[in-house]
Design a protein around this nucleic acid. Sequence first.
DNA 1: AGCGGTCAAGTTGAT
DNA 2: ATCAACTTGACCGCT
Length: 309
Amino acid sequence: MIRLGLCCIFRDQPIKFSTTTAASIGKMGRPGALAKLAGLCLSNAESLLRALQFCAETGIGCFRVNSQILPLKTHPTYGYQIEELPRAEEIVRGFQACGEFVRQHGLRTCFHPDQFVVLNSQRPDVVEASLQELEYQAMVAEWVAADVVNIHGGGAFGDKSRAMADFVRNFDRLSLRARKRLTLENDDRTYTPQDLLAVCRETGIPLVYDVHHHRCNPDGLTVEEATRQALATWDREPMFHLSSPLEGWEGPKPERHHDFIDVKDFPDCWRDQRITVEVEAKAKEPAVVQLALDLRRLGVGVGIPVPGA
DNA sequence: AGCGGTCAAGTTGAT
DNA sequence: ATCAACTTGACCGCT
């Protein structure tokens, strides 16, 4: 049974998440800013519940929550603590209701902090900001029952093994809440599955295997070998990533994502696994639905696993 | 209401 | 030196 995942937003469904800009918030006084931010947070909690309801109805088993679900949460000037917001308890309850929905419907949720989170940066201020961001996302992850906060290896800085040692040192500074959700994903430029698997085995951090990145940034491993070794890093349902190249594998920039998934890009060795496959396709929910149809046509089971079944 | 410039943040590699 | 790429359009001030 393959659980398919939708990333962050919708193409056709009228479900939107709101954010704001530092420039706009900066024109207000602190109370006005907090009032505006609280409204956005509350609205995002409602949107998230509707997103999860749509996923449950459609058989989409996983939803990735955008990093800006609490807008500007860790901004150096305009960041805030939840308790500072008007209606803070209502906001937290709104997200916790999402978590309850996730558990009741057998869904999965996850986070993917963006490129500014670099745990092995050579700049201490970047590491501090990264730790803060991970703690924030882990807090919301706890509310919404997300078991994965997934990041990339970060920079190489001319020496990958030294950089990964720095990564582990800073990983150890995270709270248990953040550490137990953190995962590593191979990227399309720097860190291959081979690079990360050693760290994953050493630390117990699971590997989110992105087969598209692996095809763009290969190492000595075949897709089958990387799949097998990535599966072994998980103590829960493994999570993998899939996309198709915008202009084909022979095109000028195969790392660019297509609107939809070509089912031929779905590795055969994934078919019989019980895994989550996040669909990184620009057409969003129609792309997930299309892939589900294509996989079922090939006899692959797709849907939301029933606990115990 | 519609348009276009802009949006917090890091790192790499192609031009 | 600049810029696109990365998980992704959406916000906001102007007309």
